[in-house]
């Protein structure tokens, strides 16, 4: 197969799965901003309902910021946080009339298991419980070393119009691959 055929199939597979855009590799806050702008523009051009666009954007921001802050594959400069690069993937698309935002990244296995426990609890909650939980977490003092992920995950569950889906698969060593999908 020629290279063009090869990449065309890859392209068609993504389009066939409803992908609006997909990014794999090192993510930074600058890339988050640019992809976010492109996403909002695309949704405006498609005349998407403004409240739907806001939900998709809010979930996108929390997912990318979680990758930047928690991916186990990270390059950090001496200058600290704003210059960190973290590896992961983020995909926004449509399937069966709904938007979806899915993120994936490597985590330490223990962290992945802790994440899975938090998300299992969140996925079982109804809308009102998620809202109450969010408000409780907002009032609490920040968790040591958490950099805010717990509230970010609740925000994702809150903006999602269906229960969030997630998974973890073990990799070699102490690593695992984590993914989280939200529907709007």
């Amino acid at each position: 197969m020629s290279m063009a055929e090869d990449y065309f199939r890859f392209h068609q597979k993504m389009v066939g799965e409803g992908v609006i855009f997909s990014f794999v590799g090192y993510l930074s806050e600058g890339i988050l901003f640019s992809l976010g702008e492109a996403l909002k523009q695309k949704m405006r051009l498609d005349a998407t309902d403004a409240n739907v666009t806001k939900r998709v954007f809010a979930i996108f921001v929390e997912q990318v910021q979680n990758i930047i802050r928690y991916s186990a594959e990270r390059l950090e400069s001496d200058e600290g946080r704003p210059n960190e690069l973290s590896s992961g993937m983020i995909t926004v698309g449509r399937e069966e009339g709904h938007f979806f935002v899915v993120c994936g990244n490597c985590v330490l296995r223990d962290e992945g298991e802790a994440l899975t426990r938090r998300l299992t609890a969140l996925a079982a909650m109804d809308k009102d419980s998620i809202k109450t939980y969010y408000r409780e977490k907002l009032r609490e003092p920040a968790e040591e070393g958490s950099r805010g992920a717990s509230i970010g995950l609740i925000e994702i569950a809150r903006r999602s119009t269906r229960p969030i889906e997630f998974g973890l698969t073990e990799l070699s060593g102490d690593r695992a691959f984590f993914c989280l999908k939200a529907f709007i």
Binding site: K54, A142, G148, G152
Partner: peptide, 16 residues
């Protein structure tokens, strides 16, 4: 118009 979850936390601190 929009704020993320870490900003929500900061707004809550201001209100508190």
């Amino acid at each position: 118009a929009y704020f993320n979850s870490s900003s929500a936390k900061a707004l809550m601190n201001i209100f508190q």
